[in-house]
């Protein structure tokens, strides 16, 4: 997880089944980009809190709140959760992207944060970027024009 204030950009490259979550409070120009890999932190002693959707979102919200973020002003956008390989005959394989997306949505709802825009699913990787000066979120994929969320 990275966060910044004012004039800067935060980027995470090639999200596959992982999910990128941007948080942006426009009033104080505070922005963050969290990159989670798995749905839930099962081992409570695992120090890598930002690796998981549940602990990652909660910790990010806690941190940003300490820096003055107000939930009711915050704009949240999510991208990723792809299924990179379609395996014939084993449809369960690689469904982690879907499970990640479901968990991210559940936790954001519990945190009372509304998702303003999302670009999830599909079978391709995404690079996600947030411009903290204005909250603009850009998604880059192969063979398609850049998309503003």
């Amino acid at each position: 997880m990275k966060f910044a204030r004012g004039d800067s950009r935060i980027i995470t490259y090639a999200l596959g089944s992982c999910i990128g979550i941007t948080f942006y409070d426009p009033l104080i120009k505070l922005g963050a980009l969290l990159h989670i890999m798995l749905p839930a932190r099962v081992d409570p002693n695992d120090p890598k809190v930002f690796k998981y959707a549940d602990s990652g979102i909660k910790e990010t919200v806690r941190k940003l709140t300490a820096f003055g973020m107000m939930k009711n002003r915050t704009v949240v956008k999510i991208a990723g959760g792809a299924k990179m390989f379609e395996m014939k005959g084993s449809s369960d394989f690689g469904n982690i992207g879907q499970r990640n997306a479901a968990m991210v949505k559940k936790i954001l709802m519990e945190e009372r944060l509304r998702i303003a825009a999302e670009d999830t699913g599909g079978a391709y990787a995404r690079t996600m970027l947030i411009d903290v000066s204005n909250g603009d979120v850009v998604i880059r994929t192969v063979g398609k024009p850049e998309k503003h969320l």
Binding site: Y13, A14, L15, G16, S17, C18, M37, L38, V42, K48, K51, A82, M84, F85, E86, M87, K88, G89, S90, F93, G94, I96, G97, A123, Y124, A125, R126, T127, V142
Partner: peptide
Amino acid sequence: LSVPGSTVNMLGGILTVPIAEYGYETD
């Protein structure tokens, strides 16, 4: 062995597949 699955995409995205699959065991 299963039948193969293939993709053409960003290297970083492709490598997240094994990383996520075994994410609870190892990084």
